[in-house]
Design a protein around this nucleic acid. Structure first.
Lengths: 202, 202, 202, 202
DNA sequence: AATGAATGAGATTTCATTCAT
DNA sequence: CATGAATGAAATCTCATTCAT
């Protein structure tokens, strides 16, 4: 008797990840209880451990997998743009469109991820580097083309740019409704500052 | 008759704070045990509770008191400088000189403080705003004098600048010895980017 | 095929309650450690918190559940007796038969329960009132039938009677082996005093 | 320059006892902090230990010393009364006049004293026995005079009577303002029940 | 694969008591 | 006698993780 698969295989894993994002964003990584995540995902506590080594692994997995999507999305966004300086602009806009669209995920990636000692001190967030590496590459490209100052260390510019947009994103998230600035406005200004700041002068 | 040795009033409090900074920096706020702090300070566990409400209060007190010192120090540094653009430069240098000189304190202020949910979501870090407010004021001054673009929102510039130097500082701290850049170099480049980035053009 | 051993559902709960009665009676509520109770019940410390909110909830639950049984038992004892004065007699005998049979429980209900501030000052021991209410009703019945003095306040008689048997019960428990009186003898004398004391005179 | 003794010697001991009664009555023995007592007495924490071995000794001392006063007062009250049955009446009235006049003390003696394991299980409250012994003696006198039933065990009657008035006193104290009965009325009824209950019949 | 009851390690905090001044 | 800062033992409760079913 053929019957539609009653319990969509692999469905659980996705549900756990989504639940974890929501709970981590809501209560913070440390205060988030595994039970809460299981409850929200509609699975038993133990089930989580069939898919993830432990609570931290869950957080790290969110990071890994979501960053893959974000990186792909960013690449697609940058691809049609040729001018390095315009790409910087696009980078900031893309970053904030994500923050706005998936606030819970952004909160986890920006705020809660930092709560994990392992993440900050032991874990090598290669996906983050890959993400930012796209930015560093833009800088390097710009330098080769002569539109970006050659005396700029792409590595420093990269962290500075990320720090700037990350901090503004975090402030916007923390302030919630009462944020004193529009995310778009912030994106334009930050991009503006950096573009003018690293632009090669005649 | 020499004066009787005055009771070492406040001595313990200071020792606890210093011990806490060291332990928080070393193990992180959550993994730091009150016993460890007490041990390092050379006092009994209970003694800590004579001076601080609880472990979190200890963290917050470190923030409050150290920020006072830092703000005072920053003011003294900026005072003799007149040019707003030069002040931005001095701000970055001052920030990193602190990070380099008191790495443990910087680690607590930058990294561990963010572990405290209360700090990020409930506590209003007014001292941080006061610190950054000095920067925002520099921007406003520069705008009045016409040396900084009038279309810049000082509030956004402020967070962006702080995010940039904070992130670089954090990366430098996390990377410890193997940091791929010099803090001084970072200070100059970040200041450079922002100065050129927000400078009014003729 | 014999049935699979059904999960010993609720078994643990019962064991924890029994262990708690024993430990509370033995060391007193305040000196009783949750660990002791868990040990005696053959469960882990944390297991207790799956069934009870906290240590005090455990004490209160013992009160609630055991009083239900006691009230039911008392009702069954009084049911076949018609004469109010004889019922008073039966009440005392029933009370002490319980004290003698379940000394630990009696000790907890009489002595340890009073250690709980919450019980005495905040908690409304409705089950105790229900228990004593049965006595008050006997008094009212007797008054209606004219066998008990009409000038007696059933409420006062109730507390007085309870105080009398409770105190004697407590003294008997505290004195343990060396009690200077038999519980039966006490039951008869107290009942005797109250019966003659509140009996309507011709 | 003659001056009134600035610090009345021995005054402190009294103040500590009074403060302890108030704090014990207010918060209960276990929740009462030695610091609170010291504060209320206007002395340093350590001073209490110059006069009392420990917190429990303080409670026991209150019992010992106050019972002496109460016993003396009771004796004076009973002295002019000759009739044993009237003496029982006077006993109850005297007991409640104390409860009403010194509610905090009564609360400590009746309620909080029972919180002390040592008191209930180890300590022999000889002063209480002396107090109640006066009642037992009244019963014995009455039996010798033939006005009280010879089949009554003075020991049992004593505990029963004490239990009855003690319980009513406790209920009155616990109910505070909203007590459902007057203490005087209770005194009369309890005495009435016992007098009629143990009276020898012609 | 899924369950969820059970585990038990672990750390904060309180407060009676001490003792150097 | 008096002080009160300092002590440090002690115990509740939480919650990530396990494992028998």
């Amino acid at each position: 008797m053929t019957q539609a698969d009653p319990a969509p295989r692999g469905d659980k894993r996705e549900r756990i990840i989504d639940a974890a994002i929501a709970v981590f964003a809501d209560r913070g990584f440390h205060k988030a209880r595994v039970t809460d995540i299981a409850h929200r995902a509609g699975v038993a506590d133990g089930t989580i451990y069939l898919y993830f080594r432990n609570k931290e692994d869950l957080l790290l997995t969110i990071f890994e997998e979501k960053m893959d999507l974000i990186i792909a999305s960013l690449k697609a966004t940058l691809a049609p743009i040729d001018d390095p300086l315009e790409r910087i602009h696009a980078f900031a806009l893309h970053h904030y469109s994500l923050v706005r669209r998936e606030r819970a995920l952004a909160e986890v990636l920006q705020v809660e991820l930092r709560l994990s000692n392992r993440f900050l001190k032991e874990y090598r967030p290669e996906k983050l580097w890959k993400y930012l590496g796209l930015f560093a590459q833009v800088v390097r490209d710009g330098q080769e083309r002569g539109v970006i100052r050659a005396d700029m260390d792409p590595f420093i510019v990269m962290w500075a740019f990320f720090g700037a947009i990350d901090e503004l994103g975090m402030q916007w998230i923390l302030a919630r409704k009462k944020a004193r600035f529009k995310l778009d406005q912030a994106a334009h200004q930050v991009a503006d500052i950096f573009i003018q700041g690293i632009q090669a002068r005649p």
